[in-house]
Computed example of a mutant assay.
Amino acid sequence: MPRVAGSPSCRETDQREERRIGRSLRLSGLPSGYTLGNFDFVFQPSIEKARIETLATSAYIQQSETVLIQGPPGTGKTHLAVALGIKAIEHGFSVAFYTLEDLIHAARQDVDRQPKRMKGVKYLKSSLLIIDEMGFQPLSREDAALLFRVVNYRYGRGSTIITTNKAVKDWPEILAGDEVMTTAVLDRLLHKSHVLHVNGRSYRLKNLEKMLA
Results as ranks from 00 to 15, higher is better:
Ser28Arg: 06
Tyr60Ile: 11
Ile86Arg: 12
Ala50Gln: 11
Lys77Gly: 07
Tyr60Asp: 08
Ile104Ala: 04
Val111Tyr: 14
Arg26His: 07
Leu25Cys: 03
Ile47Gln: 00
Ile89Ala: 07
Ile89Arg: 07
Phe97Tyr: 15
Ile61Tyr: 09
Thr78Arg: 03
Lys122Arg: 14
Ala81Asn: 05
Val67Asp: 04
Glu48Leu: 10
Met118Asn: 10
Lys119Tyr: 05
Val111Met: 13
His91Ser: 03
Ser58Ala: 15
Leu27Thr: 00
Lys77Cys: 07
Ile61Met: 11
Arg26Trp: 01
His105Trp: 13
Gln70Asn: 07
Ser46Tyr: 14
Val95Trp: 05
Thr57Asn: 06
Gln109Ile: 11
Lys119Trp: 13
Arg113Pro: 02
Leu103Lys: 05
Gly22Met: 14
Gln114Leu: 15
Ala88Val: 11
Ala96Asn: 07
Gly37Asn: 10
Arg108Ser: 14
Arg113Tyr: 10
Ala56Trp: 06
Glu53Trp: 10
Leu30Met: 02
Ser28Asn: 07
Ile69Ser: 03
Gly22Asn: 14
Ile89Met: 09
His79Pro: 04
Ser32Asn: 12
Ala83Ser: 13
Ser94Lys: 12
Leu27Ile: 01
Gly76His: 04
Lys122Ser: 14
Phe43Gln: 03
Thr35Tyr: 08
Gly33Thr: 02
His105Gln: 12
Lys119Gln: 15
Gln109Asp: 14
Val121Met: 12
Gly92Tyr: 12
Leu84Gln: 10
Gly85Trp: 03
Ile21Gly: 02
Phe41Glu: 05
Pro45Gly: 06
Gly92Pro: 11
Arg117Tyr: 13
Pro45Arg: 09
Val82Trp: 04
Tyr34Gly: 00
Thr99Asn: 00
Ala88Tyr: 07
Ala81Asp: 08
Gln62Ala: 14
His105Cys: 07
Arg113Phe: 14
Gly33Phe: 05
Leu36Arg: 09
Pro115Trp: 11
Phe39Lys: 04
Thr66Cys: 10
Ala81Ser: 09
Val95Ile: 04
Thr35Gln: 05
Ser46Phe: 12
Ile21Trp: 09
His105Pro: 00
Lys77Met: 11
Leu100Glu: 07
Leu103His: 06
Phe39Val: 01
Lys49Thr: 06
Gln109Asn: 14
Gly29Met: 04
Gly22Pro: 12
Leu55Tyr: 07
Ala50Val: 09
Glu90Asn: 09
Arg26Cys: 03
Tyr98His: 10
Gly85Lys: 03
Arg51Asn: 03
Glu101Asp: 06
Tyr34Glu: 01
Met118Tyr: 08
Phe97Leu: 06
